[in-house]
């Protein structure tokens, strides 16, 4: 019985020793804690005033885009015609050039 009490006391003392040493070790460190403020500036696009005008502009854009689409069709046709001729010429030129090199 006496031995058990001594063992309990010794164990308690050892635990306390470890705890106090650990606490002392961790709290003994100096440290610096900081909060740094950083700022930036950016231009803000005022899209609120533009909003009303932009509606009209948008409808204009739609009309323009419609007109452009017609033009585009024509252009495409022209292009297709040109594409039909130009590549032949280019091929011929290419052949000629290669022939010259040869």
């Amino acid at each position: 019985m006496k031995g058990k009490v001594l063992l309990l006391i010794a164990t308690t003392a050892l635990t306390l020793l470890i705890l106090t040493t650990s606490y002392g070790y961790w709290t003994d460190h100096l440290s610096i804690v900081g909060e740094a403020g950083f700022e930036f500036r950016l231009p803000v696009i005022n899209d609120i005033t533009i909003e009303d005008q932009s509606h009209d502009e948008a409808s204009d854009d739609i009309e323009r885009s419609g007109a452009l689409s017609d033009k585009t069709t024509v252009t495409t046709e022209e292009d297709s015609e040109q594409q039909g001729t130009i590549p032949e010429g280019s091929e011929e030129q290419g052949v000629d050039e290669s022939t010259e090199f040869q």
Binding site: S31, V33, G34, A36, G37, F38, E39, R41, V44
Partner: peptide, 11 residues
């Protein structure tokens, strides 16, 4: 112009 100020921490 928008200006924003944020805080950044360190230890």
């Amino acid at each position: 112009v928008l200006s924003v100020h944020g805080c950044y921490g360190f230890e």
